[in-house]
Design a protein around this nucleic acid. Structure first.
Lengths: 133, 133, 133, 133
DNA sequence: GTGGTCTAGACCACT
DNA sequence: GTGGTCTAGACCACT
């Protein structure tokens, strides 16, 4: 993953979304330990405090549990909950785009075309990223 | 229009997008004057400086021209240009949502369903808003 | 108010309790603005980030609302809610003391005496503080 | 005994208070050996280092003496001293609760009621715990 | 090593 | 001036 420093979305929110997605996708299972605050900070080239804040948001949402001196753990009811909130975030982004399109009087058909193109692009980019290494 | 104070998108950016959409939609035509900074600030319940900043962004993008002591005007090549950048903004939002969905391993079909629902909701909300007044 | 830096209770929690008490006591009424992050930080001789965190906790609890560029405000249903949570905090402290006393086999009567003494001391200290200036 | 991981009071302090209470209550008499660091760590599901630190605090307070290769012993003047410091801890908790209540303008009568309820609850909980096994 | 709190200081959006 | 995010760096409790 890489942080988009130019985005208006706060870095810690980006991390929350990323970890939430990992749990929703089953990359991390309930009970498993997550990357430590410091390790993830190194990986994302971000200050540990920022990762800490992301983890605290996730803990407040009940997706993870922290144990002092041990680490962060995926909690039990996480996957279901993570899937739901990820889907909500997806819909929020789509709705935002649709609102912009409506204001510009973009026809629904055109928006659908733009959406399909975005899906195709994302899938292609993903394939390329997977082929590279 | 209403400003979403809770959004991560800065208010001035929301205003830019709104005006850009108005031009793209032909609500404002080339040569026409735009609402004054003060009027728009009152309407959006926002500080005039914030509107000012939005107009500056639009001017930098070449969509509007300011004439001292007279007001802001939609520039000539605006509609075409506005349509393009609005569409780019739409696609950016969609791509962001798709990225979140991919990370959460949401199937493409599911994303399409979410998209359709978002379109339907937006259209319904719009109709209701138009019927009300 | 003064922060107890030696306490195990985090500084931001102490601030939360303090503001919550102010609202419960009616020192700040719904709609009123609270001391700004920076001003309170100066007053308590604490880093602004720490005050910020306290305010964010209060906002999450629905006791205050923040408005960018304007300030922090006491929310409407605050006083009732603040009174309840302050009372809960009071009971938690009492219960903690009672647990320690039980372990040490301190008779209930003795605990009651200790409690009365603490009440008397607190009231006396308060009077002296009020008389001084 | 059980450790409250959620409490702001450090685990080692909770252990200190617990042992101190045991001595004050006469559960451990002067000259008696205390549970070994390892045994207590196992019982409390805590790292031995944490128990070690608690014992060090108790030794510094003169309540226990360590004899290399043998174990920890309750010192002679312990019970009296333990009772005093337990009572001080009890009063500190009460005072803390009272301070919170005062800030929230809770009437003294109300605090007394809260205290009585806490006492009753603690006594009931204790009875239930004793009945269970 | 791992989570949690705090400070000093910077920069941004908004009023 | 006011809230909000972020970094660099320190110190604490716990494993």
């Amino acid at each position: 993953m890489s942080i988009n420093a130019a985005s208006h979305i706060p870095v810690y929110e980006q991390i929350v979304e990323y970890i939430r997605g990992s749990i929703a996708a089953g990359i991390h299972h309930p009970g498993e330990t997550l990357p430590s605050v410091r390790m993830l900070a190194l990986e994302l080239v971000v200050n540990p405090n920022t990762v800490q804040r992301a983890y605290q948001e996730l803990e407040r949402a009940g997706l993870v549990r922290s144990r002092k001196g041990v680490g962060m753990f995926v909690s039990e009811q996480s996957p279901e909950s993570a899937r739901n909130s990820s889907e909500t975030a997806v819909q929020a982004s789509f709705s935002q785009g649709i609102a912009i399109g409506k204001r510009a009087d973009l026809p629904t058909d055109r928006m659908r075309t733009v959406f399909d193109k975005a899906i195709t692009d994302a899938t292609r980019d993903q394939r390329q990223a997977e082929d590279k290494p």
